[in-house]
Amino acid sequence: MKRVLVADDKPTGRELVRTVLENSGYEVFEASDGSEAVNQAQQLQPDLIILDIHMPGLDGFGVIEKLRRLEQFAATPIIALTASAMMGDRERAMAAGFTGYITKPIGLSALRAEVARLLR
């Protein structure tokens, strides 16, 4: 079973993604902030990570910067999840090393498709 780590400071946001992905047959783990995401990632070595960009403390950009420096996460697919709708955000995320980009509110099929694409 493929493992997915979801980091989002909002519990409802985590539950939504968890439910959708569990329905699709993934094993889902949660982190409620950036530092926890970094720790969890190192312990669990997930197949895919979904990071909310906007988290207090270490934000999504901070997390990916730490993870991408580690050998073990050099090739892990990491999806940015953001409620920001500003032009140029996607480019910034891609430049920071994200492999996928999904805006909130998510369409469930878009989320499923993006995860499936990156885990194929």
Binding site: K10, T12, L16, T103, K104, P105, I106
Partner: peptide, 8 residues
């Protein structure tokens, strides 16, 4: 958009 995300 954040609460709308969960509602939708």
């Amino acid at each position: 958009r954040t609460p709308l995300h969960t509602i939708i």
